[in-house]
Amino acid sequence: MTPSKGASVVIVGGGVTGLSAGWQLARAGCDVVVVDKGVIGYEASSRNGGGASHYHSPLFAEEQRMWPLMDELLGYPTEYRRERVIVALTDAQLTHYHYMAAMFNELGYTAEHLDVKQALEMAPLVSDRILGGIHLKFGGQANPQRTVQAYGWAMQDHGGRLLQNAQVSGFEIAGGKVTAVVTSRGTLGCDALVIAAGPQTEGLAAQLGAFAPMAPARAEMIVTEPAPLMPIGGVDGNGLYGRQTLRGNLAYGGGPHEWIEVGEAGPSARPTTPLMRNLARRVAELLPKAEHLRVIRSWAGVIETTPDGRPILDRLKAPDNVVLASMSGVGFGLSPASGHAICDLVLEGRCTFTDIDKFGIDRFADLPADWRLSRGWTPVSGPV
């Protein structure tokens, strides 16, 4: 594309949230371009646990409706697999998981209790010392890297465009609207703007006079050598989230996250931290029959967290053609639904399928300026 040409809708941020929104807008007939400071999906979007079971979100029902359809809708594989197992290593965990199962069933989503024998049949690598667990017959997991590719390719199939390695530095405003996005590769004219730039969303929103507070954190994942495939690929427990890939690798994360500071260009380095050994130990405790496997890859990337942990999905009152989108660390699983919501906010001015008022930025109007300090969400070292 010619960068100066622009598009009807410019989306800043090429993670799954921005790409899903771009795909939804393109299939609705919009001229759309997704701009990213680097390569699409380079941060958390392509390197996470791949889970799709966010029952606490207003977007949950749409997430559950769409995921089983995504391979067909996108025309490319996401490797989505339905169902998930959560196992307990303590009495307190088992009590909590049984509470969760009751809540799921009340919502109309089937979750069954598992005794030790049943859990081991579904997830043979887990510890014999578990006390039981629950079987979610909904939700599931997908391959983050394949899903990022699928969104990007599907958007382009519908006429959408990608502009990578183009850092956004500012905006042009006229008549109470953003009329152009200034990037390192040229200026893009626009009729509407979506900012879905992860931790950079706060700074970009501030240029437009909007307060969208968030704290960047480094999150780590590890990947092991392949293990024999389990009947259920998504197995959580011991404070971990993750999945077994179709090749057999175990990909797991689960914090604790490290609070950091990042600049406009994102983190300059992704050093290995002591968390990798912490994760490896906990994976071995959860899946001891795989404890002999070597860790072959690790990833330290960046997520953003809002003060209350809930996403931001809002259309600004001024400039009134701007939508802010930050999923506060849970963007991958909710991406089919968040893309739908963002498309609605751009085209209709509101989400048409669920109430997302709690995701508005007005809820932060009285937040103290030192909110990160008061929570202890401060980095232990300088920018990375």
Rank of each mutant, 00 (worst) to 15 (best):
S53V: 15
T354H: 01
N165E: 12
Q118F: 05
G266V: 05
L125T: 02
G75A: 07
P124F: 12
G140V: 06
H98F: 09
M221L: 14
S381D: 11
D357R: 15
A210H: 00
G239I: 09
G140K: 10
S45H: 09
D36Q: 09
L131R: 15
A219Y: 05
W377D: 00
G108N: 06
V182I: 12
V168K: 05
E121P: 07
G254A: 10
D157T: 06
V322C: 04
Y97F: 14
E72V: 13
E121V: 11
V32G: 00
R282L: 12
I173H: 01
A52C: 13
Q93A: 11
A369E: 07
E285K: 14
L163P: 00
G239R: 13
T147M: 13
T183N: 06
Q149C: 14
P77W: 07
L19D: 00
P213M: 03
I173K: 04
R218Q: 13
V12E: 00
T17P: 04
S381Y: 07
G203Q: 04
G186E: 02
T306R: 09
H158I: 11
Q167S: 12
A205P: 01
V87G: 04
V194K: 03
V16S: 07
T179R: 04
T306E: 05
D308W: 11
M276I: 15
P213E: 00
T352A: 14
W153Q: 12
H158G: 08
L136G: 08
G29L: 08
M70G: 05
G160Q: 01
Y80W: 08
P213K: 02
L287K: 15
M155K: 02
R47P: 08
T78G: 06
A21E: 00
G255M: 08
D31P: 07
L73N: 07
S381A: 11
T90D: 01
A206C: 05
I195K: 00
N165R: 14
E79K: 11
F364L: 08
L286D: 02
N105C: 11
I40L: 12
L120R: 15
D320G: 09
T187N: 05
V148C: 10
D157E: 05
L69T: 09
V223C: 13
S268Y: 08
A217M: 10
A365Q: 08
